[in-house]
């Protein structure tokens, strides 16, 4: 087992170096540069342009810039934002809790509902419940979520007025930020009204972001359950005369959940992608929106730092899933 873990960790190192290189090169390959874009219609003289580029070291040869960047990274320095002149890491940390809070809510919703729906469908295989659930799941799976978000806003916020249109919390609620999670901070501040306001604001973005993972998990759970239910030892358990419910819960579920765990892990990357669209539409102050804006401003150090941090989050989650998978499925780790 230890060897398996070490192996996976070792594989991460070259990948991570590759990611720093990709993040570094990508943003510099983009046409245009931050100085021209910041000046906009007003323009900037060639001398001033050179001066500003030099302030951030963008006039150095690429190799030197990359070396400085990597040395900085090793010291925990992700560089400075060109547009706000603040450290990239602190800018990231100021926004990351918002994305994380939304993503966690979405993944919890998707897992709970998805696993439940999947089990229900598998037990009632072929019934109308199964067909309806899987039909809905397929629609969810096929949904262009940016359009879905617009529809939900039109219906629930504009027409019915049930949910707020955007934002994280009602503006009348104000409390100190400790963890950056509205749900936790509001309770720490002892403000239940603020907590409910935060919940209220989370509903629509959570639904939108959870739509595709929910569908995937429901379908996956159903298939995994059916597969496991079909396997021989279940037959054995049945023949021993155990009650059917016990069979399902004890044997099938535990085995069926192994691939489901992997699926959930893989959805993290999907969630990060979905966050870009969801945050854009709901004005959610997270990193998805921040990345889009920074790309369009050619904010070199933000984009390379942001890409790196996002990739790091995805990789850590994938590694955890891998290890977890190795832990519960002994077949894998001996390979």
């Amino acid at each position: 087992m230890l060897r398996f873990i070490l192996n996976r960790l070792l594989l991460i190192v070259p990948t991570f170096i590759g990611i720093t290189l990709v993040a570094f090169l990508f943003i510099r390959l983009l046409p245009g540069d931050p100085v021209i874009l910041m000046a906009g219609e007003r323009g900037v003289s060639p001398e001033r342009h050179a001066e500003l580029m030099a302030q951030f070291g963008f006039d150095q040869p690429l190799l030197k810039q990359y070396a400085d960047y990597v040395v900085g990274l090793l010291h925990g320095d992700f560089g400075y934002s060109f547009s706000t002149k603040k450290p990239v890491l602190s800018e990231f940390m100021a926004r990351f809790p918002a994305t994380l809070e939304l993503a966690l809510c979405a993944i919890v919703l998707a897992t709970v509902l998805g696993v439940a729906a999947g089990i229900l469908s598998a037990i009632r295989r072929g019934s109308w419940i199964d067909q309806a659930t899987m039909g809905v799941a397929l629609v969810g799976y096929s949904m262009p979520i940016f359009w879905w978000a617009l529809l939900l806003i039109i219906f629930f916020s504009t027409t019915l007025g049930w949910t707020p249109v955007s934002g994280r919390i009602s503006l009348t609620q104000f409390f100190p930020s400790v963890t950056g999670f509205m749900l936790i901070d509001s309770l720490l501040a002892g403000k239940p009204a603020a907590f409910w306001s935060a919940v209220h604001h989370l509903i629509l973005p959570t639904i939108v972001l959870a739509t595709i993972p929910l569908a995937v998990i429901a379908r996956q759970t159903r298939s995994a359950m059916l597969e496991v239910l079909g396997e021989v030892y279940i037959m054995t358990a049945k023949s021993k005369g155990l009650a059917q419910r016990r069979v399902i819960w004890l044997h099938a579920l535990r085995n069926a959940l192994i691939p489901v765990v992997t699926t959930i892990g893989l959805q993290v990357s999907v969630l990060m992608g979905g966050a870009i669209l969801t945050e854009t539409i709901f004005s959610w102050p997270g990193i998805g929106k921040w990345m889009i804006d920074s790309i369009s401003r050619r904010d070199y150090q933000v984009v390379q730092g942001g890409l790196l941090l996002i990739a790091a989050v995805v990789m850590v989650v994938n590694l955890t899933v891998d290890l977890l998978y190795g832990l519960i499925n002994p077949r894998v780790r001996h390979r």
């Binding site: 594989l11 990948t15 990611i19 990357s269 966050a275 870009i276 990345m291 890409l307 996002i310």
Partner: peptide, 14 residues
């Protein structure tokens, strides 16, 4: 691995 480490939409966008 590097390609898959980035959210696909973000990577496509860049």
């Amino acid at each position: 691995d590097i390609i898959l480490a980035f959210p696909s939409l973000l990577l496509a966008l860049v």
